[in-house]
Amino acid sequence: MKKYKWFIILANLVILLVYFNYSISQKEELLQDGKLVLLPLAPVDPRSLMQGDYMSLRYSISQDVDYEKLAKRGYCVVRLDSGDIAEKVRFQQNTTPLNKGEYLIKYSSSDPWNINIGAESFFFQEGHSKKYEAAKYGGIKIDKNGNSLLVGLYDENLKNIK
Rank of each mutant, 00 (worst) to 15 (best):
S148F: 05
L16Y: 11
F91L: 03
L149N: 01
L49G: 07
V78Y: 07
R90E: 11
K130R: 14
D45C: 04
K141F: 00
Y22A: 06
Q32K: 15
Y154D: 03
G118N: 01
G34P: 10
S48N: 10
Y154M: 09
C76W: 01
I105Q: 01
I24E: 12
N99V: 01
L13I: 13
R90S: 11
Y137I: 10
Q93T: 10
D64G: 12
G52A: 04
G34Y: 09
Q26R: 10
G138L: 07
Q51N: 14
L17Y: 13
L49K: 15
P40Q: 12
N114E: 07
D66S: 12
Y154E: 03
R73D: 06
L31T: 11
S60F: 03
N157A: 12
S23E: 12
Y54Q: 13
D45T: 09
K144G: 09
G139M: 07
L17N: 13
Y19W: 07
R73G: 01
A71W: 04
L70G: 01
N147I: 07
L17A: 13
K100I: 07
I15W: 02
F20Q: 10
L30R: 09
I117N: 02
L70K: 00
T95W: 05
F7W: 14
D143R: 04
S62V: 05
Y154R: 05
I140S: 04
D155P: 02
I61D: 06
A71L: 05
D66W: 08
N147R: 12
Q93W: 00
Y19D: 04
S110C: 09
G52P: 08
S108T: 15
L17F: 14
L57S: 10
N116F: 09
E29I: 13
S48Q: 11
K2G: 10
Y75C: 09
Y107M: 06
E68R: 14
G152L: 03
Q125I: 08
